[in-house]
Amino acid sequence: MSLATNHEGAVRPEDLSRYFIERANVGDIEGLVALYEPGAVLVTGAGRKAIGHRAIRQFYEELLANRPTFAPGEQLPAVRNGELALTSTRIPNGATAEVARRQPDGTWLWVIDQPHILG
Rank of each mutant, 00 (worst) to 15 (best):
M1F: 03
S2L: 08
A4M: 07
A4R: 13
T5D: 06
T5Y: 03
N6D: 13
N6A: 07
H7G: 00
R12W: 05
L16S: 04
L16M: 01
S17W: 10
R18A: 15
Y19N: 01
Y19D: 03
Y19E: 04
F20L: 03
A24E: 00
N25A: 10
N25M: 11
V26L: 07
I29T: 11
Y36L: 06
Y36R: 07
P38D: 12
P38E: 13
G39P: 00
G39A: 13
A40W: 00
V41R: 13
G45H: 10
A46F: 09
R48K: 15
I51Q: 11
H53Q: 09
R54W: 03
A55G: 02
Q58N: 10
Q58A: 15
F59C: 01
L63M: 12
N66L: 09
P68D: 08
T69S: 13
T69C: 05
P72M: 15
G73T: 11
G73E: 11
E74Q: 14
E74V: 14
L76F: 04
L76R: 15
L84A: 08
L84H: 12
A85N: 11
A85G: 10
R90Y: 09
P92Y: 05
A95E: 13
A97M: 15
V99C: 07
R101N: 04
Q103K: 03
Q103C: 05
T107G: 05
V111M: 12
D113S: 09
D113P: 08
Q114C: 10
H116A: 13
H116N: 11
G119D: 10
